[in-house]
Design a protein around this nucleic acid. Structure first.
Lengths: 204, 204
DNA sequence: GTCTATAATCCGATAGAC
DNA sequence: GTCTATCGGATTATAGAC
């Protein structure tokens, strides 16, 4: 039994030092961007010398790649579990939206990296991340399509609404946290309602 | 008569060389990010040596600042004109949404810079941009509030919907252009409909 | 005002001692 | 496996000729 997937849970096979480096890189990359962060800053935050990093990751880009891949895989698994957890098509969409929004708020460091640092990966790694992105989007897309087939979602709204719902969730990583900001669960609840409105859907 | 504000229109007081540098920086910063772009890349794209840039801008950050300030000011003016152009509160919201979406698609280079390169500005410049951001958001907020007062928009949806609508428009800069992507005017039209649905509003 | 040349610094990554 | 020390190169920015 795998349980709810987490970023840290993806690192169980790694040495504690490698995990500290990844955690440090998430904070630094998330705050200053990949190119705005030096390997020295990552190593210092992880409590070691700049050289020690290269025992665990061959390049700086490999550090970004590991965070990106892990992050995307967790998102895919989170939305899949959310989709499988409920049978009603409208409730399924709600569960997916809530999972996406909560991830982008709770893990806004990782979320910023996977959504905004894509261009700093090697072309091969970019293609790999693009595939994972499409998997995530297809889970939402299929749930919406099922809702349309069941007559619970308006067909005309569906194509653009899928894109719009992804945007709502992704953009949380940009502004969260902010002044007078709600807690992640509250944002998820509010955005779920807004998503249903865009889809012209009503809960059962 | 000022007409419709544009980025280039804000540069009429500048020397042609300075304008070429700004245009080059928008392309480079927008594609690779501020820290991912060297002053050499900007100067080369503008057709001059790296040193020549410093006759027009004292630092690389000043180049980013000039683009950010101009971009934000154009957005403020665009949404203000959109708001003033129509009297009906619901149509006013539509006009603002359309203006925001079109800007983030048509000028996605500038839009990415003002939305995602904020952290690379000096603290003082960050505060200045934050004020302009709030002005833009307040124009949308006030239009929505007027719609609520007129009984045309559902009051319960208003606070989070404002944030969500801003997110929809801003995130266009991240993904535009993409495969099978609509043209800016079509995206604006579709997102206007989705915004009204979130607000529980109907056109007159 | 633009150029070539370069200063001063910082970067990613490596060498070699322990 | 981590350290100190440093390499080779890129970076932002400047100096000085034209």
């Amino acid at each position: 039994m795998a349980g709810t997937p987490t970023i840290e849970g993806s690192w169980t096979g790694l040495a504690p030092t490698a995990r500290r480096l990844l955690a440090a890189a998430i904070v630094e990359f998330g705050e200053h961007g990949y190119h705005g962060t030096s390997t020295r800053a990552v190593a210092t935050r992880a409590g070691m010398s700049p050289a020690a990093m290269y025992m665990h990751f061959p390049t700086k880009e490999e550090l970004l790649y590991e965070i990106s891949r892990t992050g995307h895989e967790v998102v895919v698994e989170l939305v899949r579990q959310a989709a499988e957890g409920v049978a009603d098509p409208v409730e399924r969409v709600c569960a997916i939206v809530a999972a996406m929004v909560r991830f982008h708020a709770d893990h806004h460091g990782v979320a910023r990296i996977i959504q905004y640092e894509h261009m700093s990966l090697t072309p091969a790694h970019q293609r790999e991340m693009l595939r994972l992105r499409r998997v995530t989007e297809s889970v939402l897309q299929e749930a919406i399509d099922q809702g349309v087939l069941a007559g619970r979602i308006e067909a005309t709204a569906a194509p653009m609404a899928t894109l719009a719902i992804m945007s709502l969730a992704i953009d949380v990583a940009r502004w969260f946290p902010a002044q007078r900001s709600r807690r992640p669960a509250q944002i998820a609840e509010a955005y779920t309602v807004l998503a249903l409105r865009m889809l012209g859907a009503a809960r059962a």
